[in-house]
C-alpha cells in the first residue's frame, strides 16, 4: 500500500502487477394485479423480475495497461396469468457473455482520478424460453443463439490510494460497438454497427465498484 502511495504520487501511474476486481449490479421488479369491476373472474396478474450483474478480473501488465476478463449475466423473467381464460404465459430470458478486455490508463497528475480507455471483445450466449399454458397443455418454445460484440469506451475512475477501493464509470462520449449474430435455421445473419462521438456531458453512466489489489513488496 505504501508503495502504491509513493508510486502514485511520484509517477502518477498504477504499479505493474496490481490486481483488479470490479463489478456492478442492477435489478428491478414489478408485481401487478388487475381486476375487472363487474366480472371478478376477469383477473390478471403480472410478475416481472430482472437482474444484471457483471464482474471483471484484471491485472496490470505494465504501468498503464491492464488485461482482464469480464463476465456479464442477465436474467429476465416475466409471468402473466389471466384467470378467465385459464391462461399462463411465462418468458425466461438469460444471457451470459465472456468479455476479455484491455484498458489503457492515464492518471491525472498526482490525484486519485484516472481516465482510461476500455476495449472488450467476446461472445455472448442468449437463450429465450417462452411457455404458454392454457388449461393443462403447456406449449414451449426455445430460442438460443450466440452473438459477438466489440466495444471501446472511455471511463473515469476514482481510486483510493489508501486501500485500493474505487468507483468507476464508463462514459458514452465516444463509442464503437459491433454485434454479429450468425445465421441459424431459417433466421438470417445480423450485423449491427454503432458508432458515436459526443462532446456533451454523457447522459447515462453506470457506476461500478472496484478494488485494486496492490502487490506487496
Amino acid at each position: 500500500m505504501g508503495t502504491w502511495l509513493s508510486l502514485g504520487n511520484v509517477y502518477g501511474q498504477i504499479q505493474k502487477g496490481t490486481g483488479y476486481v470490479g463489478g456492478t449490479i442492477s435489478f428491478e421488479g414489478q408485481t401487478k394485479k388487475d381486476k375487472e369491476k363487474a366480472e371478478a373472474l376477469n383477473t390478471s396478474s403480472n410478475w416481472v423480475q430482472s437482474i444484471a450483474p457483471e464482474i471483471q478480473f484484471g491485472k496490470m501488465i505494465g504501468e498503464r495497461t491492464m488485461l482482464g476478463l469480464g463476465v456479464r449475466y442477465n436474467l429476465q423473467y416475466n409471468r402473466y396469468r389471466y384467470e378467465a381464460a385459464d391462461l399462463t404465459n411465462t418468458q425466461l430470458s438469460q444471457g451470459i457473455a465472456l468479455l476479455p478486455f484491455i484498458r489503457q490508463y492515464k492518471t491525472l497528475g498526482s490525484s486519485n482520478w484516472s481516465v482510461f480507455l476500455h476495449g472488450e471483445i467476446g461472445p455472448q450466449f442468449q437463450s429465450v424460453e417462452t411457455t404458454s399454458t392454457q388449461g393443462s397443455t403447456p406449449v414451449t418454445q426455445k430460442r438460443e443463439y450466440w452473438q459477438y460484440g466489440l466495444s471501446i469506451k472511455p471511463g473515469i475512475a476514482y481510486v483510493s490510494k489508501k486501500n485500493g477501493w474505487a468507483v468507476e464509470g464508463y462514459a458514452n462520449i465516444l463509442s464503437l460497438s459491433a454485434n454479429y449474430v450468425p445465421s441459424k435455421d431459417d433466421a438470417g445473419r445480423v450485423f449491427m454497427l454503432n458508432t458515436g462521438i459526443s462532446t456533451s456531458f454523457p447522459n447515462l453512466i453506470t457506476l461500478r465498484i472496484a478494488k485494486y489489489i496492490f502487490p506487496k513488496n
Binding site: I25, E28, K33, K37, L204, I205, L207
Partner: peptide
C-alpha cells in the same frame, strides 16, 4: 372498468 395494484422496486446505479 378494472382496478389494478402494483408494487415496484429498482436498484440501478446509473448516473444521469
Amino acid at each position: 372498468k378494472s382496478t389494478g395494484n402494483a408494487v415496484t422496486y429498482a436498484f440501478s446505479p446509473n448516473l444521469s
